[in-house]
Amino acid sequence: MNRNDKRIGIFSSGGLTSWSVCRFLKECNFDIIAFLADVGQKDEENIDDFLKDCKKAEIPVVKIDLKKEIAEMGVLMVKYLAKYEGGYWNSTGALRAVLVKNISNLMREYKCTMFSHGCVGGGNDQKRFDNYGNIFLKDIEVQAPWSNQEFLSKFRNRDDMVNYLLSFGNYSTLDKKRNSSTDGSLIGTSHEGTNIENLNFDYSSVVKPVMSVMPYKAEDKDEKIELTFKSGVITQINGNKVTPLEALCICNDIAGNNGVSLFSVVENRIKDTKCRGIYESPGMNLLGYAMLKIYESTIGKREFELLTNMSKIIGKQIYQGRFFENSTTAACKAIDQLAENANGTVRLSIYKGNIHCCSISDYYISNSNVQQKRFAHGGHIWDKK
Rank of each mutant, 00 (worst) to 15 (best):
N252P: 12
W19Q: 03
Y364A: 04
A82D: 02
K138I: 03
K67V: 07
K101F: 05
S281M: 11
S104D: 11
K127Y: 15
G122Y: 10
I140N: 14
G14R: 03
G74M: 08
E85V: 05
S91Y: 09
C112A: 15
V75R: 03
N179Y: 09
E45L: 08
G256K: 00
M214S: 12
R128L: 14
G256F: 00
G353N: 08
K352S: 06
T329K: 15
T182G: 01
F375Y: 11
K111E: 15
R7N: 00
M214E: 15
F50Q: 03
I187Q: 09
S104N: 11
I250L: 11
S264E: 13
N157A: 01
K6P: 00
E44Y: 06
C251T: 15
L16I: 14
N257K: 12
V242L: 07
D175G: 12
A144M: 09
K55T: 12
A331R: 02
A218E: 10
F263H: 14
L174K: 07
I270K: 09
G239H: 08
N4V: 11
D253W: 02
K230D: 04
F304V: 01
M284R: 12
S13Q: 04
V39K: 03
R96D: 08
L292D: 14
Y279K: 00
C275E: 13
N341R: 11
Y295K: 07
C332Y: 00
I234P: 11
M161T: 06
I313F: 01
C358G: 00
S368V: 10
S18V: 05
D222E: 15
R374C: 14
D383T: 05
E296V: 01
P215K: 07
R3V: 15
R7D: 07
I254P: 02
V120M: 12
L245F: 08
L25G: 04
A255C: 04
S212T: 11
S359Q: 10
I70W: 05
K101A: 01
K333R: 13
G288L: 09
F155D: 00
L137H: 14
Y295D: 04
S185P: 07
V61R: 04
S181I: 02
S311T: 10
F129P: 06
V242G: 08
Q41Y: 05
K217V: 02
D43T: 09
F50M: 01
I254K: 08
E141C: 08
V100C: 04
F151D: 00
F151A: 03
F151L: 04
K154I: 01
F129Y: 15
D202F: 02
G86A: 06
K177C: 09
N343V: 13
N343P: 09
S172E: 15
K42L: 07
I234F: 04
S91L: 06
K127P: 00
K83A: 07
R269S: 11
A330E: 15
D175C: 04
S204D: 06
G86P: 05
R269E: 11
T189R: 06
M107P: 03
H191K: 12
D183C: 15
K333C: 03
N200D: 13
L76Y: 10
R269W: 14
V207F: 12
I59G: 09
N179C: 06
